[in-house]
């Protein structure tokens, strides 16, 4: 079968049907929204109440989730949220303190040793003193059914410097070589930890274009990222984790809705706070003098209720929250609930 032709046909399907397959209409913090009836067949990855302690520090705290075949899933969380630890456990580099991780129905170690996973870690290094082509050839040869080396080089955009030595590449080039190693084995599951770090904007765009071809071939992709717009554009499902727990699990649209996806602001004199707090759809309220700012899941309903009650606000502005604000709102809420003032300084 001609891979590229198949990829082209399927990438349209990928583009048009990201979210529809999922069961959840409302994102939940438990990760159960995506389980069960909507998915036929077995999950690619499952975490069952997974915990990981480093001494007294609990890095991952009862994480439960499933990844389904063909999904592109983004893992989002602030630094120290437990993303890397979770990926390390998934890739059998660390053992969970409690709970169970399954991959393709077996333990992660055996799934990896059978060549069903391709991964790119931030902490993954390359062998120096060999050329890019030699390295890709080596790693391809370790997998049972590799993609032809020249194809991998082309897809990763590294054919142009395939004969250079690995230790003489720039940061962005190195990152693309790492990506090549993750796809060289034609694996069913691809795991990428912050794949586009050190890439410039143009390279990043190319990277995701190539990635869509990979995913269109039916692969499952899990990636952690710093760039929220990347999660928004590339993923059909986002997992938000903070303090080692899953806070939200849904499509980018659902995640935004959960945080109150619309921002509504107006001036009102006098301000009746108890009334405003009772408005439908309201998620968050901020009042400064006569200026009112509201985050709402349904800005229309919020505004109509306000007008119906006889108020005549001035300077009405309605805007959308980006994923970034949604993300910050979700993690900040969690941090407040845990009595910690230090919030979303980094993602």
């Amino acid at each position: 079968m001609n891979r590229l032709v198949r990829g082209d046909v399927m990438s349209q399907e990928y583009a048009s049907a990201p979210a529809g397959a999922h069961a959840g209409t409302q994102a939940t913090a438990t990760g159960t929204a995506h389980d069960g009836a909507a998915h036929t067949g077995a999950s690619v990855v499952s975490f069952e109440s997974v915990t990981k302690n480093y001494g007294n520090l609990r890095a991952v705290d009862g994480l439960s989730l499933n990844l389904w075949p063909g999904e592109t899933v983004a893992l989002l969380g602030p630094n120290g949220a437990g993303k890397s630890t979770s990926l390390d456990m998934l890739l059998a580099l660390r053992k969970p303190t409690g709970g169970r991780i399954r991959m393709f129905g077996s333990d992660p170690y055996h799934a990896i040793k059978s060549g069903r996973v391709g991964a790119m870690l931030q902490s993954g290094g390359l062998m120096p003193e060999v050329t890019v082509r030699e390295l890709v050839t080596l790693v391809a040869g370790l997998h049972p059914r590799p993609i032809p080396v020249e194809t991998t080089l082309k897809r990763a955009g590294i054919a142009g410097f395939a004969d250079q030595r690995v230790d003489r590449l720039s940061g962005g080039q190195t990152q693309r070589v790492r990506f090549a190693l993750a796809i060289a084995g034609d694996s069913e599951l691809i795991v990428l930890d912050e794949p586009t770090t050190a890439m410039d904007v143009e390279t990043r765009r190319l990277f995701w274009a190539n990635m869509k071809v990979e995913v269109a071939e039916g692969r499952t992709l899990l990636f952690a990222t710093h760039y929220l717009e990347e999660a928004d554009q590339a993923a059909d499902r986002i997992l938000v984790i903070n303090r080692g727990r899953l806070l939200a699990d849904g499509t980018p649209a659902e995640i935004k809705a959960r945080a109150g996806a619309k921002r509504l602001s107006f001036r009102l004199d006098p301000v009746d706070e108890p009334f405003l707090l009772g408005l439908p759809g309201l998620v968050n309220l901020e009042v400064r003098h006569d200026l009112v700012q509201i985050q709402s899941t349904d800005s229309d309903a919020t505004l109509y209720a306000l007008l119906d009650a006889g108020y005549r606000p001035r300077e009405i502005e309605v805007g959308s929250l980006g994923l970034e604000q949604a993300f910050l709102a979700i993690t900040a809420e969690d941090d407040r609930a845990n009595g910690d003032a230090h919030t979303g300084e980094a993602v």
Binding site: L91, G115, L121, S123, G125, H143, R178, L181
Partner: peptide, 12 residues
């Protein structure tokens, strides 16, 4: 330190 050993552990 470079993580080449880690990378190899992700292969079969």
């Amino acid at each position: 330190k470079d993580g080449w050993i880690r990378q190899l552990r992700l292969t079969p």
